[in-house]
Simulated scan of single mutants.
Amino acid sequence: MKISELPGDEDSGVTCRTYVFQNESHTLGNALKCIINRYEDVQFCGYTVPHPAEDKMHFRIQTQETPALEVLKRGLKDLQKVCDHTIQSFEKEDY
């Protein structure tokens, strides 16, 4: 997964950033948004897929004080934990 920052956020400080995820869509965007929106310091978190023909997703984070990149990293780690738990729970069942 390739992630870059959308240019133009430099004047808003480190607490407000838009990240561009290449080769990602609503699947990651919605799951990550749901996790990050629960964090106490987050004022806004959302995503868009600019156009269906483009294989990218824009992910926006605005916080009170915590750097947006720190929140993004935490969100990705927490999402990984949720996925790991889901896989482990599924594998415990006899299917």
Score class of each variant (00 low, 15 high):
3 I>W: 05
3 I>M: 05
5 E>F: 08
8 G>Y: 11
8 G>F: 09
9 D>P: 01
10 E>L: 03
11 D>H: 11
12 S>F: 15
12 S>T: 12
12 S>N: 14
12 S>V: 12
13 G>Y: 06
13 G>T: 03
16 C>V: 08
16 C>Q: 11
16 C>Y: 13
17 R>Y: 01
17 R>S: 03
17 R>W: 02
18 T>G: 02
18 T>P: 04
18 T>A: 04
18 T>H: 00
19 Y>I: 05
19 Y>K: 03
20 V>C: 14
20 V>D: 06
20 V>S: 07
21 F>K: 03
25 S>W: 07
25 S>M: 07
26 H>N: 05
28 L>P: 06
29 G>Q: 03
30 N>Q: 09
30 N>G: 04
31 A>F: 01
34 C>M: 09
34 C>E: 06
34 C>I: 01
36 I>R: 00
36 I>A: 00
39 Y>C: 03
39 Y>K: 03
41 D>V: 07
42 V>L: 06
42 V>R: 04
42 V>H: 01
44 F>K: 07
44 F>H: 11
45 C>K: 00
46 G>P: 05
46 G>D: 02
48 T>Y: 09
49 V>W: 05
49 V>A: 07
54 E>S: 13
54 E>H: 12
55 D>A: 15
56 K>V: 15
57 M>S: 09
59 F>Q: 02
60 R>G: 00
60 R>Y: 10
62 Q>P: 00
62 Q>H: 12
62 Q>V: 13
64 Q>H: 14
64 Q>F: 10
68 A>H: 00
68 A>P: 00
73 K>I: 02
73 K>Y: 03
74 R>K: 11
75 G>Y: 01
76 L>V: 15
77 K>G: 08
77 K>H: 14
77 K>I: 12
78 D>A: 07
81 K>M: 12
84 D>M: 10
85 H>R: 15
85 H>A: 13
85 H>Y: 08
86 T>Y: 13
86 T>F: 15
87 I>C: 05
89 S>Y: 07
89 S>K: 15
89 S>D: 13
90 F>R: 12
91 E>S: 09
92 K>T: 09
92 K>N: 05
93 E>P: 01
94 D>C: 10
